[in-house]
């Protein structure tokens, strides 16, 4: 468990350092570099954000189904009501992932920061 978390932290640090390197490299090309960095950061944020959200929601959904199955095994007459409650809970948990997904899609396809940055550097928009 500890090893896994260390691997996660190291991977995250590596990714961040890599992003910083690309930022430093982009500094040379004064105008286009920041826009390119923003695009790269958007793609990175979209992927990482949806991944983290999905992992957390997966844990939550697992707990939810486990509770429903335990209750149904103990008292099979309640199966219908428990299933409905489980589905509502699953829908709420799933909505959190969809929030992350919509934010990721906005960051990828309709980034509101990109035109502002382009206007600052005089690249149209």
């Amino acid at each position: 468990m500890k090893k896994v978390s260390w691997i996660t932290v190291l991977t995250a640090l590596f990714v961040l350092a890599w992003a910083g390197l690309s930022f430093a490299a982009g500094d040379d090309v004064a105008k286009g570099g920041h826009v390119g960095f923003l695009m790269a950061a958007s793609v990175l944020a979209a992927g990482l954000g949806v991944g983290i959200a999905a992992s957390g929601c997966g844990v939550g959904m697992g707990h939810c189904s486990k509770g429903c199955l335990d209750g149904t095994a103990r008292n099979p007459e309640l199966a219908g009501k428990l299933t409905v409650t489980m589905f509502i809970g699953l829908a709420l948990i799933e909505s959190l992932t969809i929030y992350a997904l919509v934010v990721a899609l906005i960051a990828l396809y309709a980034n509101p920061m990109l035109p502002k940055l382009m206007a600052i550097f005089g690249l149209g928009g």
Partner: peptide, 25 residues
């Protein structure tokens, strides 16, 4: 039916929030 209801709940909650935010923006 249960599946369709559950996905409707999840999508409708999220999309009405984002519809509000995008309209305001």
């Amino acid at each position: 039916r249960h599946f369709s209801n559950a996905t409707t709940i999840a999508l409708a909650v999220v999309l009405s929030t984002f519809a509000g935010v995008i309209t305001g923006y």
